[in-house]
Design a binder for these strands. Structure first.
Lengths: 111, 111
DNA sequence: TAAAATCGTTCGCGATTCGCGTACCTTCAT
DNA sequence: ATGAAGGTACGCGAATCGCGAACGATTTTA
């Protein structure tokens, strides 16, 4: 799983094996082993790879299939904050209503 | 890092070492090694532990310090959707303004 | 209260896996 | 032609893994 993900992400960014190896301070052959599935990265390496690719370890490990996490406000899977303060359930309901109305209006305008 | 997190989470749930070992189909001494830091879990074990504890691998590995992820709308680290459709940047700005105004009003009312 | 079970810790062992250097093949620019 | 750069494969020594076993300390059962 992780080998597939690493390979995808690296190719998408058009990075070389050597470049990543340099970033993590490991040998090119070591990182190559991760992509081929011949080796498994250490937990520390997984962390650094997630940072380097600006993704999550959950994505690299295949816990999730979202390269960048998605939060659906109607069924939040995360705490939502604004200015560091949690958005209350009450506020959330109004937010959602606000978005729905706004979208509805702009749809009508198009017609 | 991961050893500390595992120990915290297990104690919070009042689970025994044996219980977790059974869930993952590994020896008690193996899991004990994870918590003591004497051993590092395999990537597969990390995945399963995240599922078992209902948290993320990012939290177990110490990429994040949030047991449950938090998304700050002013600096989102996730795609935000409502009814499956992504909230645009424009909508997001209005949302944030909405929340701020609402909070401001309720603060004034208290005085 | 004696015996048995449960819990957490530690350790040695054999087996597995790691990270590295090296060598090799292509491709491409010099 | 030749050298640099990218990707792949492999052997080696060293490090780490997972397991069972053994231990003391509690707790539960009879």
């Amino acid at each position: 799983m992780i080998s597939k993900r690493l390979s995808e992400l690296r190719k998408k960014r058009q990075w070389s094996l050597q470049y990543i190896a340099d970033q993590l301070n490991i040998a090119k052959s070591t990182y190559a082993g991760y992509e081929s599935g011949y080796r498994q990265p250490s937990l520390e390496a997984v962390k650094e790879l997630a940072l380097l690719f600006e993704t999550t370890t959950d994505y690299l490990l295949g816990v999730t299939n979202e390269e960048q996490p998605t939060v659906e406000l109607t069924h939040p899977t995360a705490y939502i904050t604004v200015d560091g303060k949690q958005v209350t359930e009450d506020e959330m309901m109004q937010l959602i209503a606000f978005i729905r109305v706004k979208r509805d209006l702009s749809t009508q305008k198009e017609k």
